[in-house]
């Protein structure tokens, strides 16, 4: 093996080991708390500017967090909990638009437009390349 190749291989192996060590040093997730935080980040704080209750320190946010914890211990599902909040505060309390009705456009429109433009781009590129060949 040439010197270049062996040096190259050494550096790549070292970097891969470095990355793997880095990732494995990351503390293990033993707690179950992520479900709570998942829900917290889906409910907006009603009195703050654009923050979810996960980030906000307002007292109403803390009350809402307690309510969610209670409902989780009562065995309610995520959907049931979100529905509970939506009933009381309206759709705008949920941090993302729902997947139904008009709101689905927020998700669909960009995806459709991006895929559509990509196809258009590829099509017009092919046309120009074929024109250049002839």
């Amino acid at each position: 093996m040439s010197k270049l190749k062996s040096d190259l291989l050494k550096i790549l192996i070292l970097s891969s080991i470095f990355l793997i060590v880095l990732i494995s040093c990351i503390s293990d997730n033993t707690d179950n708390n992520n479900r709570e935080y998942n829900l917290y980040s889906q409910i907006m704080c009603p009195v703050c500017d654009g923050q979810t209750i996960a980030e906000s320190q307002a007292s109403i946010s803390n009350d809402m967090k307690k309510m969610i914890t209670t409902q989780i211990s009562e065995g309610k599902t995520d959907d049931q909990i979100l529905y509970y909040f939506k009933e009381r505060y309206g759709q705008e309390i949920i941090s993302s638009p729902s997947y139904s009705g008009f709101n689905i456009t927020v998700w669909i429109a960009p995806i459709l437009i991006i895929i559509g433009s990509l196809l258009l781009l590829i099509y017009s590129l092919r046309k120009n390349m074929n024109k250049a060949k002839s």
């Binding site: 980040s41 889906q42 907006m44 654009g50 979810t52 309206g90 759709q91 705008e92 309390i93 949920i94 941090s95 993302s96 638009p97 009705g101 008009f102 709101n103 927020v106 998700w107």
Partner: peptide, 16 residues
């Protein structure tokens, strides 16, 4: 847009 066309207030947050 949602307010104008669907008369509904939504929030578009980080998840989107």
């Amino acid at each position: 847009i949602s307010e104008l066309f669907a008369n509904e207030t939504v929030t578009v947050g980080a998840p989107y």
